[in-house]
């Protein structure tokens, strides 16, 4: 990880036109190349607003009032258009339906690349690469959106964005509208991206069970403010704090936290399911020895 942040947010305030309250209040955030960040918080807390301010949709495409600076990959979002920033920052939305813009998967993935004005051979290469990472086979190319499942559509959306090879990839609740199979499919893509794609990844999520083990930094937004910004181990160490702010940690964590309060378990809260099983087993064996 280099020392120069790829995203630098300084004293950011944002208020949507016609609203009384600030959607974002004095946000200060530095994100470094290669980080995998999970942003959590209840609905309407400002998660999506923050994400949109990192790719220029805010302030360029929304009416409102902004204070402070957002510098993304060297570009000030006040000075560059969303279209320009899109070369460096990819954005995947939560609704797989309304971000599917064309009538076949191939057109969909090619769309952004055509906009970049890349040569035809390069586009072909990148489509192949993006489809491989997202686990889509060649036969999908000719398929229209109505023949795809939600999970497949969302994978196409991710393929369409990563084909543009952005340095930062933002995913706004990519699994919230999907069924369990779809959620698993998208999660596997995220794992693959973390493994093989050298980019900064920012994911907004409600469901933390699967994202916690992937992230190396967790950010809690509540009421437009960053309340907590820490590595997962530290983030999940204060379960009561999370529950108080309507963030629901995975059940195993809540349970182990209770064991800890009863003095049955000592140590930090495990992040994965397997670690949780091991932790409970060892502490119960330890006590009954």
């Amino acid at each position: 990880m280099s020392n120069k942040p790829i995203i630098k947010i300084t004293n950011l305030w944002w208020k949507y036109e016609g609203r009384k309250n600030w959607a974002l209040k004095n946000i200060n955030l530095e994100i470094y190349p290669g980080e995998f960040i999970a942003i959590v918080g209840p609905n309407e807390s400002g998660k999506t607003t923050l994400a949109m301010s990192m790719n220029g949709l805010i302030p360029n495409n929304y009416k409102g009032f902004m204070k402070g600076d957002v510098i993304v990959a060297g570009m000030d979002t006040k000075k560059y258009s969303t279209g320009d920033i899109s070369k460096k920052v990819g954005f995947v939305f939560s609704d797989p339906e309304s971000q599917f813009l064309t009538m076949t998967v191939e057109e969909e993935i090619a769309f952004g690349l055509e906009n970049l004005g890349l040569p035809v051979e390069e586009i072909e290469k990148r489509i192949k690469w993006a489809m491989k990472i997202t686990g889509l086979s060649e036969e999908f190319l000719e398929k229209p959106p109505y023949e795809l499942s939600g999970g497949q559509k969302q994978r196409v959306a991710i393929a369409a964005v990563i084909a543009m090879k952005p340095e930062v990839l933002i995913l706004d609740e990519p699994t919230s509208m999907l069924d369990p199979i779809g959620k698993t499919e998208v999660l596997n893509v995220l794992k693959e991206l973390k493994r093989s794609y050298n980019a900064t990844i920012i994911v907004i999520e409600h469901r933390l069970e699967d994202i916690a083990p992937l992230a190396n930094r967790m950010i809690l937004i509540y009421n437009g403010e960053i309340l907590k910004d820490a590595p997962p181990k530290e983030f999940f160490d204060d379960i009561d704090f999370l529950l108080k702010h309507y963030v629901f940690p995975p059940e195993a964590m809540v349970y182990i936290d209770k064991l800890r309060k009863f003095g049955i378990y000592e140590g930090s809260i495990p992040l994965t399911f397997d670690e949780s099983v091991k932790a409970v087993r060892e502490s119960i064996r330890g006590i009954t020895k």
Partner: peptide, 13 residues
């Protein structure tokens, strides 16, 4: 649910 799975993984205890 995760808590059910946790219990099921620990039936040996």
């Amino acid at each position: 649910p995760q808590i059910t799975r946790l219990a099921q993984a620990l039936t040996d205890l």
